[in-house]
Structure formats: structure tokens, C-alpha cells
Computed example of a mutant assay.
Amino acid sequence: MIISTTPTLQGHEISKYLGIVCGEIVIGAHIGKDILASFTNIVGGRSNAYESTLRETRDDALAEMVEEATKLGADAVVGLKFDYTVIGQNGSMMMVAVSGTAVTLA
């Protein structure tokens, strides 16, 4: 499956637009990661715990979107976009959403 943030694919002709496909993952805060992140905020630096969780969540959302596109018979997804949103009481959860247009190629 070809995935691109661009609306076209160089060297490929889009033959059919199958529709919008999405993947959404919501993750909750984890007390252990919150403690590590708080320590990182005090001493400075990057929060590896949050970064790895974010990367994992993004990959899961992408896999969910690709699965949806595959069910439609797509060869590619174009116009890919990621959104990150804090939701829930006191911002206790985060949603990672990915969307694009499933297409078939000539």
C-alpha cells in the first residue's frame, strides 16, 4: 500500500477515488509515564516514555486506516493527515487520528 501526504503520486495515475479512510486511537494517561515526564520537565530534556507511546499510537492509527483502505480494495492512500487532540477530563486522554483518501491506481 502506497501512502502519501500529497494529493497525487508521481509516476502513478489515480484511476478511482474510493473515499475517505480513517484510523483513530485514544490513549489514557499512565501514572508511571506521568511521573517520568514530570521528572524530565524538572531536569530538562525529552520524555522518552511519552514519545514512544505517541509513536506507537500513531503507528496503530495508521495501521487501522490502511486496514480500512485495504477492505475498499485500495492500492494507495493520498492526502494523508495526522491530528493529535487532548480530550477527557483534565486532558487525561489523547486521540491520534489519521485520515486520507483511498484510491486505486491505473
Rank of each mutant, 00 (worst) to 15 (best):
L36R: 11
R55P: 05
M1F: 00
V98S: 02
R46W: 14
D60M: 00
G91I: 13
F39C: 01
F39K: 13
T57R: 01
S47L: 07
T101C: 08
V103L: 06
G44S: 07
Y50M: 09
T53P: 02
R55I: 04
L54T: 06
T8P: 06
F82D: 15
L18H: 04
V86A: 15
E67K: 09
R46T: 13
K33M: 12
A69S: 06
S99L: 11
R55F: 02
T104L: 12
S47W: 11
R58N: 02
A63H: 02
G32D: 14
I3Y: 10
T53N: 09
A61H: 01
V86E: 14
L72G: 03
T53H: 09
V86P: 00
A61T: 00
G28H: 09
L80A: 10
K33C: 14
L105K: 07
G79W: 05
N48K: 12
L18K: 06
T8C: 05
V78Y: 03
N41H: 10
I87L: 05
I27E: 12
R55A: 12
D83A: 15
G32W: 07
D60T: 00
A61P: 00
E51T: 03
Q10I: 05
M65H: 04
V98H: 08
E24L: 08
G19K: 03
S47M: 05
V77A: 01
I42E: 15
D34I: 07
S52G: 03
H30N: 15
R55W: 01
D59T: 00
Y17S: 14
V77W: 01
